[in-house]
Design a protein around this nucleic acid. Structure first.
Length: 399
RNA sequence: GGUGGGGUACCGAAGCGGUCAAACGGGGCAGACUGUAAAUCUGCUGGCUCAGCCUUCGAAGGUUCGAAUCCUUCCCCCACCA
């Protein structure tokens, strides 16, 4: 690939790039010295579920690899032990060494669904942070001022609103920046929320006499609700290790508007291609549902295996469009007559009798496709009876 | 160390002696409508042996016929000043 071709490929879909000129220079130097660039990417090991939000970044890393560069994938085991800096909830329990190892393995297994393992260097930041003495930390902190840190958008906002900022949070960007120094990153990638931290990496590299890294940010993909960024804690995510059925079902519930973004950022479709589809939809030549189906199928194929998308799509159409039953559903053993409330709870479709009662009263419970809204109903079990709760929860009764 | 402001259900936030299982908003769930879209509309959203009862408003005691609301002690959080 020529330098120009690389630049076109590598800078697609970015939000911030500091700076295009520097990236070009680095690419030229690397080519002249016949080596690849080192592309840094950090990950938090406490939540080892990779979801589509992460894929946006992973795709970009893969593009770097395809252009001949090396990805330095940093597992933030040390920072993970300190806890979550965005201090929303209670302090995160410190992870044990074993737990970290397990999570790291799971991470790799998932990440390599996108990345090329041959061109990936996996590093743990405890390697260099774990051995630091407090003295080293103090020396490091001396390089950054409070004013610099307060420049970060969310810090200044919180400060103005009299909301707490813990010292650890201040230290966090510093630690991340130091990682850049230790791995001699040429480029660091992250979500737009990482911009400040990434830039601090540049500052620190300069202090240590290194050529500052190029910083590239990518958009934060909205989750299934279409508003908030995709994250595990908000429950609006699609994990890449989920079953084809789940991935497909979740993706079909996404809004039309958002589906274009998924095409662009997860499937890396070219903007022209997407525009063409949008034009067809606008002209009524293409049903948005068909587009969404394609999006969901492609994503399932990519993460669950080729052919799985088609299967998931067919099953989905059967269950929801034709209202037939899924291939497989959990079985529920019953012996003798059972109250409907107890039945729903036993099936695990309600966490309390009260919730079950509500579901029944609201018409969300069906037996053999017949709505039953009497909370006192008693069911005489028959083999093969189907219990349906809401739109997507099914169980087959056996006795 | 000093001053001030706080801790209420999943989250945010009202309530400041009875009418409080606790307004309102968000989230979640169900229903209608659909493309299981989205948006919208409606209902529900502590537990139970459910027209009744039981357990909740940082913790423990107390005052009272009656406390989320008053008093005491304690724990925790935040800001400001030093």
């Amino acid at each position: 690939m020529t330098i120009e071709e690389q630049l076109t490929l590598l800078t697609a879909r970015h939000v911030d790039l500091i700076s295009a000129g520097e990236l070009k220079k680095k690419l030229e130097t690397a080519a002249a010295e016949n080596r690849g660039l080192r592309i840094k990417y950090g990950a938090d090991p406490s939540a080892p579920d990779i979801h589509l939000g992460h894929v946006v970044g992973l795709n970009k890393l893969r593009e770097f690899q395809d252009a001949g560069h090396t990805v330095v994938f940093i597992i933030g085991d040390f920072t993970g032990m300190i806890g979550d800096p965005s201090g929303k909830s209670a302090t995160r329990p410190a992870l044990s060494r074993e737990q970290i190892a397990v999570n790291a393995e799971s991470y790799k297994q998932q990440v390599f669904k996108v990345l090329d393992p041959e061109k990936t260097e996996v590093r743990f930041n405890s390697d260099w942070l774990g051995g630091m003495k407090f003295e080293d930390v103090i020396r490091l902190s001396a390089h950054v001022t409070v004013a610099q840190l307060l420049a970060r958008d969310d810090f200044s906002k919180r400060y103005d609103e009299n909301r707490p900022i813990s010292l650890v949070e201040f230290l966090y960007p510093l630690v991340q920046a130091y990682d850049s120094v230790m791995v001699k990153a040429d480029v660091e990638l992250g979500g737009t929320d990482q911009l400040f931290n990434l830039l601090l990496g540049r500052e620190l590299q300069k202090v240590f006499g290194q050529d500052p890294q190029v910083v590239m940010t990518l958009p934060l993909l909205e989750g299934l609700d279409g508003v908030q960024k995709m994250s595990k804690s908000l429950g609006n995510y699609v994990g890449i290790n989920e079953s084809p059925k789940e991935i497909f079902g979740k993706l079909m519930s996404v809004s039309d508007e958002l589906m274009w973004k998924y095409f662009l950022y997860i499937l890396c479709r070219r903007p022209e291609e997407i525009k063409a589809m949008q034009a067809k939809v606008a002209a009524d030549e293409l049903h948005p549902r068909a587009v969404k189906d394609e999006m969901a199928r492609c994503i399932v194929d990519r993460f669950a295996g080729a052919g799985e998308g088609q299967k998931a799509s067919e099953e989905f159409a059967r269950i929801f469009a034709q209202k037939e039953l899924p291939d497989e559903m959990p079985e529920l053993k019953l012996s003798g007559k059972t109250g409907l409330i107890a039945l729903v709870v036993q099936a695990g479709f309600a966490s309390s009798n009260g919730e079950a009662r509500r579901l029944i009263q609201q018409g969300g419970v069906r037996i053999n496709d017949e709505q039953i809204s009497d909370i006192k109903a008693v069911i005489t079990p028959e083999n093969g009876m189907i219990l349906k709760v809401g739109k997507r929860k099914f169980a087959r009764i056996v006795c």
